[in-house]
Design a protein around this nucleic acid. Sequence first.
DNA 1: CTTGACTCCGTAGTCGTCTACAGGGTGTAA
DNA 2: TTACACCCTGTAGACGACTACGGAGTCAAG
Lengths: 140, 140
Amino acid sequence: MRTDDTTMTIGRLARAARLGVETIRFYEREGLLAAPDRTASGYRLYPPDTVERLGFIRRAKGLGFSLAEVRELLGLAEPRGSRARVKELTEHKLAEIERRIDELHRMREALAELNRQCSGHGPVEGCPIIEALNEESGHE
Amino acid sequence: MRTDDTTMTIGRLARAARLGVETIRFYEREGLLAAPDRTASGYRLYPPDTVERLGFIRRAKGLGFSLAEVRELLGLAEPRGSRARVKELTEHKLAEIERRIDELHRMREALAELNRQCSGHGPVEGCPIIEALNEESGHE
DNA sequence: CTTGACTCCGTAGTCGTCTACAGGGTGTAA
DNA sequence: TTACACCCTGTAGACGACTACGGAGTCAAG
């Protein structure tokens, strides 16, 4: 197999991108990565900039984008993409993250209050946490 | 079928607890709900306090506990339960929620900064969001 | 020529929490 | 009697993002 310095097999790509080989094949099936050229024996041969593309995917995921959204962002990153749409996706994601933060804040406040009330000593009878779970709290 | 005022069929229980019938059967399979008595023809007959138990489950889930954790909490709510363990579970959950909040905060800050930098007008070339996704950001 | 690492494909399994059938039996009211 | 709502079981599907596996072919080094 000739893998000159301009192409790499899937294993090398996986190491370079800090991903599993299976994950890369999965991304190809999912349309995040174009099907690469093959050797005569069928091995995938990737151009080196594929590492960057996988980096893009990794970073977008790190910002909270789903693979479907990453797929769209990758499409928008092409010359004909719309910057307005990129900003729109970003704002949607931002709003979604804020909703999740709000919900977690509500959980945290409720849980912290129960935790504060509970001594942690003695039998479970009278435990304020269990008692709260046993009762309607009004707004539910 | 005789459903006096002390027992109810699964459909009535589901309405009372604001859950689906399938969900209740699922909770039974998962060990959150004991298998109830049956009529001669095999219908499940629930004592009315099952509504409370399902309320407990709903509230615990609302606080962020997984079904596995709810199962343990239900066990601890019995007379022989340990209050220390209840508090321990609560503190673990609290820490977990705080980790998730922190992670979401980090995403929000990064995303908000990119969003702020992006005008939303014009072609995608030069879009700060896409450019950020295309580059290493140092600590990754 | 053998070994061992690598690759291929296709399929199926994992996690958690349901949700939806299909194909029956049961209960009740008109 | 007929209609209809309800109940039963067992199995499969849904979501998202992988991860694993079996069985086979390929490549480079010793």
